[in-house]
Design a protein around this nucleic acid. Structure first.
Length: 556
RNA sequence: UGGGGUAUCGCCAAGUUGGUAAGGCACGGGAUUCUGAAUCCCGCAUUCGUUGGUUCGAGUCCAGCUACCCCAGCCA
């Protein structure tokens, strides 16, 4: 588990504090993260994971991982692996407490029988359409099912026969007997078991009836001794049912789980629903669930986000009940902050412009000492030669006053190296600048006689001869605007969300990097070695750019 | 005259029993800098959806409005 997390106050912790003060939950706080294995986890799940595991951690309690696998028609084993990987990667551990709702199918069946015995559940023969009709509407009460008053014996018999596969899918359901006139529609005799002759990824052919979420969830929580069942806002009106079930089955009000709801995460420029994410993958708008532009945990991981930065983000945004839309700049700030501390610096030129140092010997190579990070003592050598590349954007022929990079007759410092002066601009027949001829001040290297000359600009560079070719992938938001609520978000996709630069050059120290390694490319941003990267073909993803006050100044 | 929620700075979000509006992001200004990065200062709600009321005093209590979100799957 990640240590030294600073927990900001939130209403859930306030509730727990009150509970503790009242002497409840003396055995400790116990939460659970209950994903349905029907898709990949995204940043919204990360928030839930951090709340659940984080709350347990704060109160020195426990958090279980529980797969909510009560609907075999939608779920698949493929997802249970990725979910475990993602939770682990985020830095949390469920120890030996990984469960499945399907582990409890026998117990759940017994609970259902018990409910029938207590006169609180009945088998209903109405078909789906009829049940819908009988349910009433938002403004009109429902009508009681004609099967509502079957005897306990008949209900037990029928429910057993449902289990034994005597009926077709949809022929019968088991319903809780609550109140068809309740203004809360979930209390109008909700279905708690349905028939589905679908094999389950864990229980195989054993069952042909499956419990509904509303039935399985509170009871699974109770079985596991969960004290605080934290979920999202849309389950708020299910809470009376959650409590009704626990009460009807006799669970002690002082120790049984309490459901608490919080607002799910929304991010600007981001789609968050599983359906839409699936659409992006299946429509080949992205390369897969782990495409670095995807808001999935695997996407962020591949992009180069750190687990610590995502955890920090989840803490910073807070937990509340109001629907909100968090600016993605907040997330970007969190990665920058983390990577600034952790990432070694390296020089790479994304859009190369050749510079010839005319007074530097053609066959000479000088290895210059460079620190890996501003505050570390780790160093490396960077080769300097007569021909180097600088960034095209670092030279301007007709530069404004505030442009303190290279311009004709201007001087600039090369990071870790010398001060150079631009003497000549070489252009092609179309007038494009293709090469610069400069001279260097041999005494201007660090420690040299003229090293402390006041030069405003410092550029990153790379040796033409000694640098390595590298492919760099730049990412922009998948969505141009906040289109999560648009009916057809596909039309809002950003056509420029991916830019592949195949002509980049990088200093040779990086030759043997392994997948997932993160660097700061000096003055450019944070970059991460992609899984496509090979020794003979390096590939980096840009995690996020550096803050750029020059770009801001230019806009004005 | 269905029910359940939520409304505090551009975006998140603290505000315990009423005592006179935290913090982060973003933004603006300055210092510093061999990354126009980082760092460091400074600024950024006389006001808490709205209208009234109670009170010496209300974001916090009361009443009425308004806006937005969720609910009529044999999904979770």
């Amino acid at each position: 588990m990640p240590e030294n997390v600073n927990f900001l106050p939130n209403f859930i912790h306030n509730i727990i504090d009150e509970d503790l003060k009242d002497g409840k939950y003396a055995d400790g706080i116990h939460t659970r993260f209950p994903p349905e294995p029907n898709g990949y986890l995204h940043i919204g799940h990360a928030k839930s994971i951090c709340i659940n595991f984080g709350t347990a951690q704060k109160y020195k309690g426990l958090c279980n991982l529980r797969f909510d696998d009560t609907n075999p028609t939608k779920e698949d084993i493929e997802y249970v692996d990725s979910i475990q990987e993602d939770v682990k990667w985020l830095g949390f551990s469920w120890d030996d407490r990984m469960f499945y709702a399907s582990n409890y199918f026998d117990k759940l069946y017994d609970f259902a029988v018990e409910l029938i015995k207590r006169g609180k559940a009945y088998v209903c023969d109405l078909n789906a359409e009829q049940i819908k009709e009988y349910r009433g509407t938002l403004t009109e009460p429902g009508i009681k099912s004609p099967y509502r008053d079957r005897s306990v014996e008949e209900n037990i018999d029928l429910f057993g026969r449902m289990k034994n596969g005597e009926f077709a899918d949809g022929a019968k359901v088991l319903r809780a007997k609550i109140n068809m006139a309740s203004p809360n529609i979930t209390m109008r005799d909700p279905i708690i078991y349905r028939i589905s002759h679908t094999p389950h990824h864990r229980t195989g052919e054993k069952w042909c009836i499956y419990p509904m979420y509303d039935f399985a969830h509170p009871l699974s929580d109770a079985i596991e001794g969960i004290t605080h069942s934290i979920c999202t806002l849309e389950f708020e009106e299910h809470r009376p049912l959650y409590n009704w079930l626990l009460e009807s089955l006799g669970f002690d009000i002082n120790s049984r789980p309490k459901q608490i709801e919080f607002a799910r995460l929304n991010l600007t420029n981001t789609v968050m629903s599983k359906r839409k994410l699936r659409q992006l993958v299946e429509g080949n708008y992205v390369s897969g669930w782990d495409d670095p532009r995807m808001p999935t945990i695997s996407g962020f991981r591949r992009r180069g986000y750190t687990a610590a930065s995502i955890r920090d983000f989840c803490e910073q945004i807070g937990v509340a009940k109001s629907n909100s839309l968090v600016d993605i700049a907040m997330l970007e700030h969190c990665v920058r902050e983390d990577l600034n501390k952790k990432a070694n610096r390296v020089m790479a030129v994304l859009h190369p412009l050749k510079v010839v140092i005319t007074n530097f010997p053609a066959d000479k190579r000088e290895d210059l000492l460079a620190e890996n990070r501003p505050d570390s003592d780790g160093t490396r050598y960077v080769p300097f030669t007569r021909e180097i590349y600088i960034e095209q954007a670092d030279f301007m022929e007709n530069a404004p006053k505030k442009f303190f990079r290279l311009k004709p007759e201007g001087e600039v410092r090369l990071k870790y190296a010398y001060i150079i002066k631009c003497n000549e601009v070489i252009k092609d027949t179309d007038g494009n600048v293709v090469e610069l001829h400069c001279t260097y001040d041999p005494e201007s290297k660090r420690g040299g006689a003229t090293a402390s000359r006041k030069i405003k600009g410092t550029l990153h560079w790379v040796s033409v001869k000694e640098s390595l070719p590298v492919e760099v992938r730049l990412y922009d938001y998948l969505l141009k605007a906040d289109a999560d609520n648009q009916k057809d978000f596909i039309t809002a996709l950003n056509p420029n969300s991916l830019t592949v630069l195949s002509e980049c050059r990088i200093e040779p120290s990086v030759a043997w990097v392994s997948q997932g390694t993160k660097y700061q490319f000096l003055r450019e941003g944070y970059f991460c070695v992609d899984k496509d990267s090979r020794k003979e073909h390096l590939v980096f993803n840009r995690v996020v750019g550096l803050r750029d006050s020059w770009a801001k100044a230019k806009r004005k």
